[in-house]
Amino acid sequence: MMITTAVIAQLPLADIDRVIFYKRDEITTDLICCDVEVAGRTLSFNEEAKGWDDLITHLSALPCFRANWYEAVPNPAFAVSETVAFDRR
């Protein structure tokens, strides 16, 4: 999925309930992924999508967003590592 400005527009900061980062084992590498819960649905993204940096910049504007989420996700390699970067609840 390409992360365009139209996709980001579907993620108004005031409506985002939760942001979770995790990695998926791709056999020889790990793929960093992000689930955004907004308005009762979950949208999933990954670091290989064009526009990933724009998405991260947008999400970083959430109040109390965990800025160091990336440090927690990659380690240990090839193990499940889920990090909640934002939770409105």
Rank of each mutant, 00 (worst) to 15 (best):
M2E: 15
M2N: 15
I3K: 03
I3F: 00
I3H: 02
T4Q: 02
T4K: 05
A6C: 07
I8N: 05
A9S: 12
A9Y: 09
A9H: 14
L11K: 07
L11Q: 11
P12S: 08
L13S: 06
L13D: 09
L13E: 10
A14V: 11
A14W: 04
A14R: 10
A14S: 10
D15Q: 13
I16T: 06
I16F: 02
D17T: 12
R18W: 04
R18S: 06
F21C: 04
Y22C: 08
D25A: 12
D25S: 15
D25E: 11
E26N: 12
I27V: 14
I27E: 14
I27L: 12
T29L: 09
D30L: 05
D30I: 01
L31M: 13
L31N: 08
L31H: 09
I32W: 01
I32K: 06
C33G: 14
C33I: 12
C34H: 01
D35T: 08
D35Y: 04
D35I: 04
V36P: 00
V36E: 07
V36F: 01
E37D: 09
V38H: 04
V38R: 06
A39F: 03
A39M: 05
G40E: 10
R41T: 13
T42C: 11
L43D: 11
L43T: 14
S44V: 15
S44M: 14
S44I: 15
S44F: 08
N46V: 10
N46L: 15
E47T: 13
E48M: 09
A49W: 10
A49H: 15
K50F: 09
K50T: 14
G51P: 02
D53C: 07
D53Q: 12
D54W: 01
I56S: 00
I56C: 00
I56R: 00
T57W: 02
T57A: 08
T57N: 09
T57V: 06
T57R: 04
H58E: 03
H58I: 05
H58D: 03
L59W: 05
L59F: 03
S60M: 04
A61N: 09
A61K: 05
L62N: 07
L62W: 03
P63F: 00
P63Y: 01
C64F: 06
C64V: 11
F65E: 02
F65I: 08
A67G: 08
A67K: 05
N68K: 08
W69C: 03
Y70K: 03
Y70H: 08
A72W: 11
V73W: 00
P74H: 13
N75I: 07
N75V: 14
F78S: 14
V80S: 12
V80W: 08
V80K: 15
S81D: 02
S81V: 00
E82Y: 03
E82M: 07
E82I: 10
T83R: 06
T83L: 04
T83P: 01
V84L: 02
V84S: 07
F86R: 00
F86Q: 00
D87Y: 15
R89S: 15
